[in-house]
Design a protein around this nucleic acid. Structure first.
Lengths: 218, 218
DNA sequence: TAACCTAAGTTAGATATGCTAACTTATTGA
DNA sequence: TCAATAAGTTAGCATATCTAACTTAGGTTA
């Protein structure tokens, strides 16, 4: 038993080879991003957490930015998946379903503010543009599809892409202002969920079709 | 003449006392912010531009952040003034006037992306919260007033603050997505002015009241 | 099993930044 | 006029990113 513990300790602490430093660094960076925001993070800190020297990361990443790119890419995948799940639950092609996408977007932004900022923040930070663009496109495309389905169902003739962009714009604005604390300092106590749920039908041009989905606390 | 030139050269280059280093540093920082974005800027660079050593700024600012705070504060003043001017020109209490505020907000964001990001970016960066909050409040308050005036005029009963927040949210989203290049990579060629001018009446609950104000190129 | 190859660490160091302390120069005003 | 002070300078500390050269451990193959 003691031997086993010792072996574990050795495996965890003393081993020359870390085991999976790449993943460990990504995880540490994410944690630091959560703790200190998108700028307060340092590579050296991540190394300390992973228990390696500050030169070690360069065996796995070209530079600091490449770690960030990896995290951004994963963020887009996560967001896309969350949106898809929201649509499926809310009901494809319905106001509720489309509202659910917006709320899922907001939830993601609030849950991972730093990652969200890196994802949509000014792009010069991101070299691996292809990958990111693809994910972004997929996100919007799914909204367009839902809006188109909704329009067909209700005999609307409006341009689905135009409406989808309006929805995205509003939801992105709400998410940004919420996670940057701008609402808080100008309109404290605002319920952002209600805000999105209230405007979505308006932008869809819906008269009414039942109430908004989940109406959580804040 | 030669003497005069020499004196000028001395005044510009050699003098021990800079003359107005404080303003010079603020100007240099703004330029660097424009060139390298809100993060790429270094205090040392600003010093080089102003022609002083890297220790000089600390005679005028507590630290790097204090320069940024000054720039943010001035940004809010500028934005507030621009909005006021837009309303006056577009017509107070009209759809055109309210749309003009939104477009002025957008114009500011596009003209000074880095400053805009610092102004609305996550607030932990800003210590001098009081000043900033005041300016922010004044901005929104003027929109609320315009919406209220509009509502009175048309006999609407809607909550002016609620509508103002919806407008702000949309315009802020449009500005953010535009200046971060997110529209460009997902819907190239989009006309953001039209986007704002198209949605503003909808959010105001206006049937129609004449066309949007200026309909510039992009 | 032994020996080698290579992936994945390490140490050492070059360069840059933010900021402080102690010193120097110019301006100002009593 | 000269002393006080505002506004620079030099020197140096701590920390960050990243490179180069070295070392160690694991896996493959003879």
């Amino acid at each position: 038993m003691v031997q086993a513990q010792e072996r574990t300790a050795v495996r965890a602490k003393k081993r020359f080879h870390h085991g999976d430093l790449r993943e460990a660094l990504i995880a540490a960076t994410r944690d630091l991003l959560i703790e200190h925001g998108p700028d307060g993070f340092t590579l050296a800190d991540a190394c300390r957490r992973a228990g390696v020297t500050t030169a070690a990361p360069y065996k796995h990443f070209r530079d600091k930015q490449e770690i960030i790119e990896e995290i951004v890419a994963r963020g887009f995948e996560e967001l896309t998946a969350a949106n898809a799940k929201a649509v499926a639950e809310g009901g494809p092609g319905t106001v509720a379903g489309i509202t659910a996408i917006g709320l899922s977007y907001l939830d993601f932004a609030v849950a991972q503010p730093a990652v969200f900022r890196l994802m949509f923040g000014h792009k010069s930070k991101i070299r691996k543009v292809n990958h990111v663009d693809e994910s972004g496109n997929r996100c919007l495309k799914s909204v367009i599809e839902q809006v188109a389905a909704y329009s067909r169902k209700h005999g609307h003739t409006a341009d689905a892409e135009k409406i989808a962009i309006r929805l995205w714009t509003f939801v992105h604005g709400a998410s940004s202002l919420e996670l940057d604390g701008d609402y808080e300092r100008v309109a404290p106590g605002l319920n952002v969920h209600d805000l999105i749920a209230g405007v979505t039908p308006k932008l869809l041009g819906a008269a009414s079709e039942g109430r908004a989905p989940r109406g959580k606390k804040r």
